[in-house]
Nucleic acid binder design. Structure first.
Lengths: 189, 189, 189, 189
DNA sequence: GATGAATGAGAATTCATTCAT
DNA sequence: CATGAATGAATTCTCATTCAT
């Protein structure tokens, strides 16, 4: 933690990986791509990560941490409805990026599920934390079917992100976002 | 004097491609994989398809045709509600396959969007036809917000397929399926 | 020689080969290219020529025959000078084709010399006949150094064809043609 | 602590390429051939040259540089006649190599002209520099028709190289060489 | 620790040639 | 004889990973 070296080459790599994996996709991304984005020489990557998988692993961790931060922020809000709608707004906040590259979490999950290494577990873990948190909110609203609703909400977001990306149409995301907000409001007791 | 060459090697290849692309994903699938699945020597594939892209293209076409057939079958049903619920049931009919490999259409769309060739347009076309048909059903139910509802329904399915796949949990799909059926029923005038 | 079949599929193949080999070059030309140009199904080529080499061989033969015909025509002319200048004019008659594809004989010789099969001998034979004929003309002019002059003239043509092709400049060929004609005139006793 | 990696693997590759392309011809030469000649593993070639074309490009550059050096040496000579004759002698200095493989510049030009990539421009540039230099010498001799003479001389060399190669007869080159030297002498004012 | 270079295991693609009717 | 289809060997190219300093 001295600054004898630029702070956190390891972190820089993980961060760059999150970015590049989102934009290019897991399979299209080469180690060289990530190294370049992080401004780290290729050969050096292996000092920090023994394999490409481990780097991806780290990227997933980093991405998870970003989401945890987001959620931690939401905890400040007074009611579960507020929190859920704020989450929605966060998810939907950059429709053009989604239109271009899809949801970072979802596309990652989708791609990693095709692999036999353990990476799919890692991203599943991240998604589960999100899902659990959403469930908690619905439970706090007194809903017995909280899990079901959580799945429904999360699925709606993931699905519309996919459609938004496929059709390259940010509008889809915005419209569906509003629909879901109204739906949340309608659930209030 | 046997029935000679098994009919439609081209079709066999496209069919095998649909299958293998779904199971392995676009980027992980090698021509050799498809060739093997279709029981065709690799070199011979190029007699039918000039490039790997063209074979993928054909697979998309084939997949689209399968969906068109599915939909054509639904047209027999008397009410739009019936038709939509039947579509849902079709989509959700093999939760274990979805848990293992995701929705074939959705995963394809997700992966192809990372590519710069025109393949993303092809799969987008397939999805648009589905979406339009769903919209038509909602319109037939007298809903002014038919497009919005169509996007919502399609997104819900795509999203839950993604979650089902990520969590490897067929239950998710089944439960959400029922929830969506009830929702459709609730829309009846 | 009935016309139950279109006359001379074999000849058509050889002729097409001459053409295509000139335009595309030996190594870039595929059997399929030649077959297509001759309007003969690929599989059928092998009925007439057991290997690609044999087809090229036939093309060389055909090309040689065309040159022999050309030369036979020149024999009508009264003086060796006339004959040589007519040969020159024949060679230089389509400078734009030469600029695009080079001299058919020369490029063939150049490419075939890189191969270990006997094809180089075949094209060398064709060139030798030409060279001998030129020598004969110089001898008829009473020149003791007829061989040397023949080599010089033939070389000048081949060389300028190469430059014309390399620089894609038909003018080169025309100008050098005139220069060589003047040179021939200057040799008259 | 040895002199470590032999210096200039990139140069070694380009040099080997010049050699092998001359001997085997462009189309018959495989990357593996060049790699072997340079004693470099195939995969490693791509560290230095992104494509085969780029390696060929580099070979052309290297070849051009060799010619430039040759010419620079000739500049020392006092008269243009001396310089031209020295060039001739350089060109004709290894008739047996020419008999076996042709003129490296000429065969390269001939083969590359069949390709659609820009490689033909590259070799044409090399030849143009040579041609220009020859023209300059003739101009220095006070000849108004310097360009024409330059084309004639260059063509004679290229042509006789082609014949020498085709007939596998080094004598041709030697004899024509002398003839051209006498011709240059005869041009002196 | 840092780094440019090395290496080899695939992957797509092309094509002469052969085969089955 | 004719012909669409089949086959496999060769070739270019990519990249994760390793090595030598």
């Amino acid at each position: 933690m001295t600054d004898s070296k630029r702070p956190g080459k390891r972190e820089r790599l993980a961060g760059a990986a999150v970015q590049v994996l989102h934009e290019r996709g897991v399979e299209k991304t080469t180690l060289a791509d990530i190294a370049r984005a992080a401004d780290v020489p290729v050969g050096n990557v292996y000092y920090y990560f023994k394999t490409k998988d481990q780097l991806i692993q780290a990227a997933i961790g980093e991405h998870g941490r970003e989401l945890d931060t987001l959620i931690a922020g939401l905890e400040q809000l007074p009611t579960p409805q507020e929190r859920l709608k704020a989450l929605l707004r966060g998810w939907m906040s950059r429709p053009d990026v989604t239109a271009r590259y899809g949801c970072p979490t979802g596309t990652l999950a989708s791609e990693l599920d095709k692999r036999d290494d353990g990476l799919d577990k890692a991203i599943a873990g991240v998604m589960r934390r999100l899902l659990d948190w959403v469930e908690t909110q619905f439970a706090a609203m007194g809903r017995a079917d909280a899990r079901e609703l959580a799945v429904g909400l999360f699925a709606s977001y993931q699905g519309v992100a996919l459609l938004t990306n496929t059709f390259r149409d940010p509008e889809l995301m915005t419209v569906e976002g509003h629909r879901l907000e109204r739906w949340i409001d309608s659930l209030a007791v």
